[in-house]
């Protein structure tokens, strides 16, 4: 028996989808080409830019390097799924608007999903490379500008909107 494609069920932005996917399909292409969710962007296609960042089971990942078949049963959230059920923008989306944290906007969906992940990781006490040794394991990590810059380093912005992006994320830090 060969199985060059596989039947896969995953939940995307709250909606369950069962699809037959070519084993070669990465999540990014599945979202953009099969599900018409074009929010996640293809920048490099090699894990080097972060434009394709989505949340998988609540954790930010590069969708260009995730094989869709391997995600059976996962919950995927893309930028299209960040708004509340009533269409209310996510606080980060609002902050990006208020801070003017983008120019061309190509990196923005990835920046937003990544920032959602950053807030969750810090709340769960995950350290970063710039977290001081005094930080208590298991306690939420406070997020200043240096922490945000380091944690968001996997998202490149060709327009160089970095200072505004950091400010927007700072606005939403609890």
């Amino acid at each position: 028996m060969t199985s060059r494609s596989s039947r896969t069920t995953l939940t995307v932005n709250g909606r369950e989808r069962t699809l037959t996917v070519d084993n070669r399909r990465v999540l990014l292409d599945l979202l953009r080409e099969d599900l018409d969710l074009t929010g996640a962007k293809k920048g490099c296609d090699h894990g080097q830019c972060g434009a394709c960042t989505v949340l998988v089971d609540g954790r930010r990942m590069n969708s260009c390097l995730l094989l869709a078949v391997a995600l059976e049963g996962s919950e995927v959230t893309t930028v299209e799924g960040l708004a509340g059920p009533d269409g209310e923008p996510h606080p980060l989306q609002r902050a990006f608007l208020e801070r003017d944290a983008f120019q061309c906007g190509y990196c923005t969906p990835g920046q937003l999903c990544s920032a959602v992940g950053v807030l969750a990781e810090a709340a769960a006490g995950h350290p970063s490379a710039v977290t001081g040794p005094e930080a208590e394991a298991g306690e939420p990590t406070p997020l200043g500008a240096a922490e945000i810059r380091e944690r968001m380093s996997g998202n490149l912005c060709r327009c160089g909107a970095y200072p505004r992006i950091v400010e927007a994320v700072e606005d939403v830090v609890p």
Binding site: G47, G50, T53, R59, R60, M61, N62, L65, L66, S114, G117, V118, E121, P127, S128, A129, T131, R151, M152, S153, G154, N155
Partner: peptide
């Protein structure tokens, strides 16, 4: 070990 891991790749990549 913790520091070495955190100095590698990006938050997204380390999650995967």
């Amino acid at each position: 070990l913790s520091r070495a891991l955190l100095s590698g790749a990006s938050g997204q990549l380390r999650n995967a």
